[in-house]
Design a protein around this nucleic acid. Structure first.
Length: 567
RNA sequence: UGGGGCGUCGUCAAGCGGUAAGACACAAGACUUUGACUCUUGCAUUCGUAGGUUCGAAUCCUGCCGCCCCAGCCA
């Protein structure tokens, strides 16, 4: 008994596949991920990619090789572009999946699809209809009333064939005729009321060029493409459930090599963002974000730029599960996955977001030294680095309070803290400008506490991060927060408002003049960094320059202090 | 009012007739040279609801209620 025959844990799709395998319906599993190249992939697609490729991986063993195809659903040249194809391939690869030899395009099947259409015509199961789009709509009927037959429904096969061939030859203008399946204008399922199979679009296709001027509809192309690739399980989202009878109708009425089974699952919805290409396109078009890869966007290109590891997204997709219930997943779940990965892999460094100068008055002027810091406290194998220290340093403005609140155990007048990996310092004096603004503080340090250890065993409650003033590098830091102010922006916008109204004005805050420890001058694009006590950061792949480094904050560290403070 | 789908903890989600997994969130505590991490503990007598079948029901049956999708020559 192979592993296949055990019912898969959890989701209903794995259960179905296991049963199909156990019942001998299939020897191997073949799935596919079928993006349309008309936009960028987002986290919702990641769910589908992980599901489809994950199943292929899971149902592969020594005896049987399961696989997942990458197929571009490029049946509509008016919205699709080759550039998207490249971006999508990159995204899938980045996510960690490989289609191997199995890269396909629906456009590869245009000839087959056309021949099948003639087959339907010859069987009196399809006809050329001269009605306009408006007329077709008007005769389709409503949810509760049947549609009316098109006056062209009873053309002869010969006439249909001739007309269809003329359509293909470019004899007609866009929108003047379509090929329709002849099914049932009274069907309760609107998809069966003589659906359009082919429409005329005189437009250059990114792959087939000007070879065609008629293009197949999704409903028609999809089942045939699946069948020709010997897909066993065609997974799609819930809104296609109504299309399944049509999917099956084509498979039953055409000489296809096999009959794939369509199974629907619920699409992903994530809190405080939108996961629909149309809506994302809108944000880009309206200038709400800087582009498809603006780090606040939920696109794969954006989260990659922001610093979300691919492994974290895969883990997230595992955790959310697959079901038919429409749900809204907590943003905190993906954040947890990102932190979990980054905590493990990010190199620890120190960086000051809002610098406050500290002068250590008993540290000899002109003296400096190098102190040893660990790159990851829990992983000594990640090594150490040297941190320059001197008389003048910067600390985080937030780590000093002239009038400390209760339980504030960082720096305050007379209070002692540890400078991470350095010394204990005590605040002696506050320097203010004419406006009374604090511009620096004067502290004393205890040389005996070098490395941050107290030989006398005395304890300090706070440890803060710092950088040496003269050796720090200056950088721009971009802090990101949730894109929207409401958890369910689509729902909020449906209630009369527009999406734009719910954009979080603080979703991006740019900080200039941040001071970072000198090791960051050699920061690499593929490395994640934890700025201790602040969060995880990575170099921005678009805007960072050697002379002007730009870091994106991937995510903050969990902040219990925020909660304590709020009480 | 037609058709399709769905209702299990705040959020996801197992469960498939034998007496409610797990994760996130949250709360309390321990540890701590990151108020991070880690650890420990707590968190659905109840599965939309009302009946029925059964020794036994979240699981089977019936009614009701609620939510989502469908009238593109988009996918």
């Amino acid at each position: 008994m192979s592993d296949h025959e055990k019912p898969g844990p959890g989701n209903f799709i794995r259960t179905i596949i296991s049963e199909d395998l156990a019942g001998g319906k299939h020897q191997r599993v073949v799935t596919r991920f079928p993006p349309e190249p008309n936009g960028y992939l987002h986290l919702g697609h990641a769910k589908s990619i992980c599901l489809n490729f994950g199943i292929a991986r899971e149902f592969t063993d020594k005896m049987t090789l399961a696989r997942c195809h990458l197929r571009f659903d490029d049946t509509n040249p008016s919205t699709e572009e080759a550039a998207y194809v490249e971006a999508i391939r990159e995204d899938v690869l980045w996510l960690g999946f490989d289609w191997g030899e199995h890269l396909y395009f629906a456009s590869d099947y245009f000839t087959t699809l056309y021949e099948y259409a003639e087959h339907l015509i010859k069987n009196d199961q399809a006809y050329v209809c001269d009605l306009s789009a408006e007329e077709i709509r008007a005769t389709r009927g409503t949810l509760t009333t049947a549609g009316r037959d098109s006056p062209f429904r009873h053309r002869s096969r010969t006439e249909n064939l001739d007309l269809f061939r003329q359509m293909r030859a470019g004899a007609f203008a866009d929108g003047t005729r379509v090929l329709r399946a002849k099914i049932d204008m009274a069907a309760a399922n609107l998809n069966l009321r003589d659906p359009v199979l082919y429409r005329i679009i005189h437009r250059r296709h990114h792959r087939s060029g000007d070879k065609w001027c008629i293009y197949p509809m999704y409903d028609y192309a999809h089942p045939i493409s699946d069948a020709h690739e010997h897909i066993t399980h065609s997974l799609c989202t819930l809104e296609f459930a109504d299309h399944r009878p049509l999917y099956d109708w084509f498979l039953a009425n055409l000489p296809v090599p096999c009959r794939p089974r369509q199974i629907e699952f619920a699409r992903l919805n994530l809190g405080y963002t939108v996961l629909s290409k149309r809506k994302l396109q809108q944000l880009v078009n309206e200038g709400c974000v800087s582009g498809w890869d603006d780090p606040r966007m939920p696109t794969l290109a954006a989260v990659r730029r922001r610093g979300y590891p691919a492994a974290a997204i895969r883990n997230f997709c595992d955790k959310i599960g697959v079901a038919k219930k429409e749900s809204l997943v907590d943003l905190s779940l993906i954040e947890h996955c990102v932190r979990e990965d980054l905590n493990e892999n990010a190199v620890r460094v120190m960086g000051i977001l809002n610098p406050l100068k500290v002068i250590i008055n008993n540290y000899p002027t002109g003296q400096s030294e190098e102190l040893i810091a660990q790159n990851h406290p829990q992983k000594p194998e990640m090594g150490t680095r040297l941190l320059p220290f001197g008389r003048e340093i910067y600390i985080e403005r937030e780590d000093f309070m002239a009038e400390p609140v209760k339980n504030f155990f960082r720096l305050a007048p007379g209070q002692e803290v540890r400078l991470r990996y350095a010394y204990f310092i005590k605040c002696r004096e506050v320097i203010k400008d004419e406006q009374g603004e604090i511009i620096g503080i004067i502290c004393s340090y205890d040389p005996a506490t070098i490395g941050g250890k107290a030989p006398d065993g005395r304890r300090v409650k706070g440890t803060i991060h710092w950088v040496a003033a003269d050796r720090a590098i200056t950088a721009e830091l971009r802090l990101y927060d949730r894109l929207f102010t409401v958890e369910n922006p689509e729902k909020a916008a449906a209630a009369g408002a527009v999406l734009k109204d719910f954009i979080n004005p603080e979703s991006r805050v740019t900080l200039q003049g941040c001071r970072l420890e000198p090791s960051l001058a050699d920061a690499r694009l593929d490395q994640h960094y934890q700025f201790e006590r602040q969060g995880y950061f990575c170099l921005d792949r678009q805007d960072s320059q050697p002379q002007h480094p730009v870091f994106n904050r991937t995510i903050t560290l969990r902040d219990t202090w925020e909660k304590i403070k709020a009480r």
